[in-house]
Design a protein around this nucleic acid. Sequence first.
DNA 1: ATTGAGTTTTTACGCGAGTAAAGTTTTATT
DNA 2: AATAAAACTTTACTCGCGTAAAAACTCAAT
Lengths: 343, 343
Amino acid sequence: MSETKIRNMQDFADASGISRPTVSKYFHDPDSVRPTTRARIEAALERYDYRPNIFAMNQNRKLTKNVGIVVPYLADPFFAELVRVIERRCINAGFSPSLFSSHGEPALECDILDTLRSLKPAGVLLAPLGRGSDKGAIERFARDVPTVLFDSNIEGLGAAFVGSDNFSFVSQTVEYLSRTGETPCFFEMRNPANPNANKRRNAYFATMERLGLSPNVVAIDGTGWEFEEIGRQGALQAIEQGTLPSSTVLCSNDRLAIGFLSACYEKGVRVGREAECDMRVASHDDHPFSRFTCPSLTTAAHDYTAVSDYAVETLFRLIEGGRASGDRPETLFPARLIMRDSA
Amino acid sequence: MSETKIRNMQDFADASGISRPTVSKYFHDPDSVRPTTRARIEAALERYDYRPNIFAMNQNRKLTKNVGIVVPYLADPFFAELVRVIERRCINAGFSPSLFSSHGEPALECDILDTLRSLKPAGVLLAPLGRGSDKGAIERFARDVPTVLFDSNIEGLGAAFVGSDNFSFVSQTVEYLSRTGETPCFFEMRNPANPNANKRRNAYFATMERLGLSPNVVAIDGTGWEFEEIGRQGALQAIEQGTLPSSTVLCSNDRLAIGFLSACYEKGVRVGREAECDMRVASHDDHPFSRFTCPSLTTAAHDYTAVSDYAVETLFRLIEGGRASGDRPETLFPARLIMRDSA
DNA sequence: ATTGAGTTTTTACGCGAGTAAAGTTTTATT
DNA sequence: AATAAAACTTTACTCGCGTAAAAACTCAAT
């Protein structure tokens, strides 16, 4: 290696025969320099593998190329899946995504927002905890940083919301279940942390009313994010005490349903749509594992790709267009019914 | 708010009545200043919520307080769980963890290492992809940055390895299964991406030999990280063609087993240790979902906490002690047999 | 060749903090 | 109280790059 060691942008500028300010401009936006200049810089880039110091870069830029991604619970494969798609989109658009999980803890969510603030991100994609979120903190944060909420909508927070249409989820499952068999009861946590759960309950009532059926909610106890275990315990109790008002059960989400099915199996309750079965179980989310439950779970699927893509697009538009007008667009994607064996 | 607006460390130093260099020292290590000084700074910290600019901080520090965490596939709850514990430990120790997932792609793993390099992290906890990893890239990286490998061991890479003792996993399950019923065959992917899989196969052979039993491996096709689906397809095929050499199946990992159980259910094969069952299935990992399979999965559990804690501790020791001697300690934690209903 | 718009170079300063050196004050030791 | 050690203040320089302004240059169209 006869090449001199490149220590900073000045060295690199000297080596490439271009002035430092122009090199700086190139790194900010390669298209902003003349093609011949760009070619010379990129030729030098091949020889010396110089990369500008991110810390020095971001220090003076009012807007970095960082994008924050915050989810409430990363150990939930549902979020892991969303994040995977979102990260990819950000990288492709030339941004550096930073991933954070609140791990179900409101305090941690606040800390993350603080940390993010100091990262001076161009924008943030935030899936809030929901009920546990510090709304004031999020509101203040969103005033400083372009923020798009996704998955969980908290009224009025952030510049936009992108998520799934809970009404579409529930109306499809309720209609399907009612049409093909007994009227479903609704199985949910009594105090759900996530606002989607409340929307789904309301959608259940609305749809039942529309169909002229009488709703029945089974509310189970439990707190935290261990939904499978909560669903399992709730189901065990309901089965043992025979308190289920219907042999068709619509769970609020797949993770509860996974626990429910596990309890059914344990109790020898046969689940499925065949004649010899005791019960039908359906749910919402199309959780990555729901195709491997026993029986495989009939559910309403998020359009993962659409939600992720549109959330990212919305954020990018927000970033480019500066703080948009006073409106706060909410975009909801409909569900797709996935018929499997459980109902 | 009559308080003047704090724009930088100088402003804050003035406001707290302490000189800037001392304030700087405080932020580097609060214990390095006199208790009375510390109290004054912290009092000021209450009034003005100043936080030093991370970019400016890290620009001149040779060593930042950043820690990189890299996992091969975050959508796998196993890693999500490990990460959760690791992140917490880092934060408690005053470090800023940055989380990255390779999403199963070797190219992305390399990109992540590049990104990480420019973050000047104090250290990195890396769970490599395994077979797909660019060993040269990792080796070069580990020369510059204190790196502790975890979960997947790649011989000679990194300054240390912390993981689970695959031999302990397999010997316990094989012994248990052999002792209580038919000799297990070993169900695995033909070309596993992860080195643990190979270790487990070897451990199976070794244990069977020690017990004077003849080993039987069922190798199934499939690539990628969708282990459940691969396991399911492999099991469907094996069941349909009746090629399983034993009615007791030991899966290489829980995700394969989840697919296997799903196939059994679909085919009406009863799994469990009771007399009326057709088959026993066991596995390794104690995946977060394995208690909710039908039947619940008998498996060998990682000591999640021990692995996470010790990996973090090892990294911190490495960071504090500078580059250690030439040895590369490998720490393996034994498994704990979890007897559930599947075997 | 001339013109002028668009680029690049030169020069210079700023950002927010790390850090080193020398001098001053505080605290601990005896 | 004398003394030394530890901590703090002052001063000043560094780091790597953003960015502004003016001068010099390129290049295509006239």
